[in-house]
Structure formats: C-alpha cells, structure tokens
Design a protein around this nucleic acid. Sequence first.
DNA 1: CGTCATTGCTATGAAAAGTGTAGCGCCCAT
DNA 2: ATGGGCGCTACACTTTTCATAGCAATGACG
Lengths: 113, 113
Amino acid sequence: MKSVAPIPGRPVRGSSTGRPIMAALDLFGRRGLLRILWELRGEAPLTFRALASAAELPPGTLNVRLKELKAAGLLVTEAGYGLTPMGRDLLAALEPLVLWSEAWAKAVPPADA
Amino acid sequence: MKSVAPIPGRPVRGSSTGRPIMAALDLFGRRGLLRILWELRGEAPLTFRALASAAELPPGTLNVRLKELKAAGLLVTEAGYGLTPMGRDLLAALEPLVLWSEAWAKAVPPADA
DNA sequence: CGTCATTGCTATGAAAAGTGTAGCGCCCAT
DNA sequence: ATGGGCGCTACACTTTTCATAGCAATGACG
C-alpha cells in the first residue's frame, strides 16, 4: 500500500496534470471507494465493522480507503464514520448515475447464463 | 485477468444482489475505466493506440477494460473505438461530477509539499 | 474484580490485477 | 521491399486486493 491519495491540484496516478477531474477519476477508480460512499449515504455514521460488512470489503482495504477519503476531505470520524459536507455533495452529484444505472439495467440484455 | 465484466441483473464483485447500482459501482471501480470513458467524450472514435496514450494505460489493461465496456454495452468498435448511445448517456450522467470536482479542488487545502 | 462482547484496526500469506516494454502479424503507401 | 502505422499479445515484475486470524482497548454485567 504505497500509492498516495489523489488530491486535486497535483499529479495523480495516470495523469500528471493534477486537474481536478483527473484526481477525481483516479480516486473513484479505487476499488470499493464509491461503494463506501454509497453505504454512507444514511444519516447515521457507521462503525468500522458495519461499514466493512455493508461495503463487503476486507478490513485492510477498507482502512486504506478510509484514509484516502479522509485525505480527500470527504470523510470524518466522529461517533463512527460519516461524510463531510463535501462528501455529501459528491453523493448528490452521483445521483444521476443511479438513474442512469437503472436505465442501463433495462437496456442491457440479460445476458443470462 | 479473469474476473467478468459487471452486468446489471446478476452478482458482481462485492455484491451478490445484482442491483444495477452495484453493477455500476463495480464497473466504475476498475482502474482506468472512467478515464477511458472520459477520453472518448469527443465525437470521433479513437484508435487503440490513441486511447492508450490519452488514458495513460498500458495495452494489456486497456484491452481488458475495452472488453468490459463492450460487454456492458457502452462501447463499439467501428472505425476505432467509440461510445454507444448508452455510453454517451453515462458520460452525460457524469457531468455533475465534473462540476463537483471543481468545487472540490477549491475546497481541499492545497496540501502542498 | 473477572469475563465477555464489541470495538478499531494490524498482520500475514497467497492470489489477482496492473505495469512497462518488446514485438508479432497485418495492412497500406511508398 | 521497406517503412510505417495498426490492434493486440507475451513476458516478467510490482502493486493491490483478499480472507482470515487475532490483538489491545473499551464498556457492561455480575
């Protein structure tokens, strides 16, 4: 675990420009990260273990992601793990995506076994 | 490289429900995938090599992602690689995220060296 | 006090995914 | 036929992720 958390304004994995969208895309491309955000959508903070269980992530990975999210200013620890206002904004910005995924589900052939 | 592409309607990595949003979150969590989408935002299709260069991905990884995107019905190959209407919809759904990332960039402390 | 449950989190070893480079076979223009 | 671009594969290596075990701390209960 040695790569650093992507922060806008400086180089990130896969892009040397540091443009905000690049930092964001790098951040989101980390496994389970979006899922964690998603599971944190409720009002009440979650415990480490509850989060691990909800997001179906092993503790090691979860812990790395939590650090990245904290570094990105999207997460705080107070009576468990919860989102910052910025984190909540992100969640809101993700809303169209939820809609899209439903349309997608209808459009993609079941591709059954 | 053996995990299958996430398709809504059946179990994906990190979720056994197959709910659309879970399939989407799994898909997006794959390194470089969102970036590829992003680089494909122009009207003209890109060649494999142009895409590899733009997305800064090695050919092996790129090829895996392309297969996943095709399986998800978001990508087609015709005179290069381009997005399907569904893929374009996704890109549109990603738009708020671009806005968010800019606000984020302003809010996150430069965290300079 | 002991003990029991639950907490956040670290350790470990193995498997999977991603990286960077080289280069193949193909096609087309010269 | 030589040179260039193409899509893509092969290789050997590094990084990431996984699953499980388990530890130190905390708080309740008796």
